[in-house]
Amino acid sequence: MEFQGRTWKFGADVDTDAIIPARYLNTSDPDELARHCMEDADPDFPNKVKIGDIIVADKNFGCGSSREHAPICIKAVGVSCVIAKSFARIFYRNAFNIGLPILESPEAVDGIDEGDQIKVDVDKGIIYNLTKGTDFKSTAIPPFMQELIDADGLINYVRGRLNK
């Protein structure tokens, strides 16, 4: 899996209320949720983000609630991948379960400015900053998570197991 796009930078501890405020959770429609993606962190984000763009954030991205609406709206707004110094536990799980690629790399986060063009090779775990001509390694994806990705998410994985 490879992605290339423009980056949008966010700070530390971006919580799920900032990613998708609870006031919009009376629906689970991905496109409707996407219209409010990251709204309380940057009200203009849903308008300016383009398909394939990449979110780059500091530590503990996605902390707070278990709402899967958070990774769902990020995926639905067209973001191809999220890179952070670290992810909150439930967000990390949810992202893999729904098939939103996420990578942990403190070095990459420090080495990327907003607006940089970057390329991400998810399988190799390498992040190329095309604007600056630098590259970074990300933490390896645990084998079981890789299995989930290969099965195209948890639901397919469980379907395979239960119908065996």
Partner: peptide, 20 residues
């Protein structure tokens, strides 16, 4: 522990969940 909706769905179907 808290999980997302997809984990909940898998749990409702299988009665199991994966953990580290």
């Amino acid at each position: 522990t808290g999980v997302g909706s997809t984990d909940m769905a898998a749990g409702m179907a299988s009665g199991e969940v994966w953990f580290k």
